[in-house]
Every structure is written in C-alpha cells, then in structure tokens.
C-alpha cells in the first residue's frame, strides 16, 4: 500500500495530477469518517476533507515519506477540522447561538426501522455530548476510540507531547461521563462492555 502511494505521489510530482485522484478515492471515506465526528455538520466535514486534500496536494513536495501518506494526510485533516471547530465556536459565541448537530444516519439504511431509529437517536446524543467538549478534547476521544490510534500517533498528529494527550484524554473522558450523567438516555443503553478488562495494546 505504501509503495503504491509513493508511486502515485511521484507521478503527481511529475505533473500527472490524475494520480492524485487515485489517492483521493483511496482515502476519502476513512478521512471523512473521522472529520465528520470532529464537526457537527456533514457538509462542513466534506469541505474540510476537500481542503485537506488540496492542502496536501500543494505540500506534496514536502512529504518526505517518513510516515505513511495517510498519516500525513490525517494530520492535515484533523488539524483543519479542529481549527474549523474553534472558528465555529468563536462565531457562535459572537452570535450567542447553539451549535447545529450532525444529521443522524439515514434510518432507511438498515432493514429494521425501530432499531435504526434507536441508533440514529443514540448517534445524535453522542454528537450532542461531543459538541459540548472543547475541540481538543473531542479530537483525542475520536482519535482514540474511533480510530484506535496510539498515544504516540495522536501526539504526532496534534503536535503535542504524549503527556498532554494523556491528560486531555483523562479530562475528556471525565467530562463526557458528566455530560451523559446529566442527560441520561431513556431510549437506549449502549451494549454493556465486559467489565474490569482494560484495553490491550495501548500501553506506552
């Protein structure tokens, strides 16, 4: 995969921009799935992903291949999304308004309408809760729990020390817990995890 990416990058640098289209098609969904959880709006997420690809294209000459192309791209997209979120928050402060939520998944996508509605409601609740966190806290939760990134990868992506990641994650988890405790779910309980078993493979 990496060798193939490198070949496409070399073609781009040689002037064949169509090769970049292949890179876009390859990573657009994976990138979008993260960005849409960092923002509250599907259209904004799409715009951020597009801008991230365009920024990556313009900086392609600076990609040295020290990391995977996706890791590099991911870093650009996540930081663009966090900046966007900060801007949205400051604009909302200026306007004194509330944030708009991400649209829940289309219930027609599953064959069980009741279950789908329940899932859509749960998704909305999770996004509402995430939206109450700072962009930095939200980002670490998304990267850790959705993407399963390691601390080193998160630190590299956000350009902060590992200790900062650890501390943000700790704060974010406690804040999220408080938010859910203040707004308990009536409709849906998430599947109960196996108790008392720490995740494996995440040690630093």
């Amino acid at each position: 995969m990496s060798a193939d990416d490198n070949r496409l990058i070399a073609e781009c640098l040689a002037g064949r921009s169509a090769a970049f289209g292949e890179l876009v098609s390859r990573y657009q969904d994976r990138l979008y799935n993260t960005v849409v959880r960092l923002l509250d709006n599907a259209e904004d997420a799409k715009d951020v992903v597009q801008e991230a690809f365009l920024n990556a294209y313009q900086s392609l000459h600076s990609f040295k291949g020290d990391s995977l192309f996706f890791t590099w791209l991911y870093r650009i997209a996540v930081n663009t999304a966090i900046s966007q979120k900060r801007r949205q928050k400051s604009v909302l402060r200026l306007h004194g308004g509330e944030g708009q939520m991400v649209e829940p998944q289309d219930p027609s996508q599953t064959s069980q309408p009741g279950y789908a509605l329940e899932m859509a409601e749960e998704e909305r609740r999770v996004h509402e809760a995430l939206n109450r966190l700072s962009p930095e806290h939200r980002a670490v939760l998304v990267m850790k729990d959705l993407e399963g990134l390691k601390y080193e990868e998160m630190a590299d992506t956000l350009g902060v020390p590992i200790g900062t990641i650890r501390s943000r994650l700790h704060r974010a988890r406690l804040e999220l817990r408080d938010i859910f405790l203040q707004n308990p779910s009536e409709a849906h309980e998430p599947p109960h995890p196996q108790p008392l078993s720490p995740k494996s493979g995440g040690e630093d």
């Binding site: 969904d29 979008y32 799935n33 749960e122 998304v142 729990d145 959705l146």
Partner: peptide, 11 residues
Amino acid sequence: HRLMELPKRKV
C-alpha cells in the same frame, strides 16, 4: 463503546 459503535460514515 458508545463512540466505537458510531456507524461508519462515507462521504
């Protein structure tokens, strides 16, 4: 688990 269970979104 709530976060892990969020559906995968595609563009």
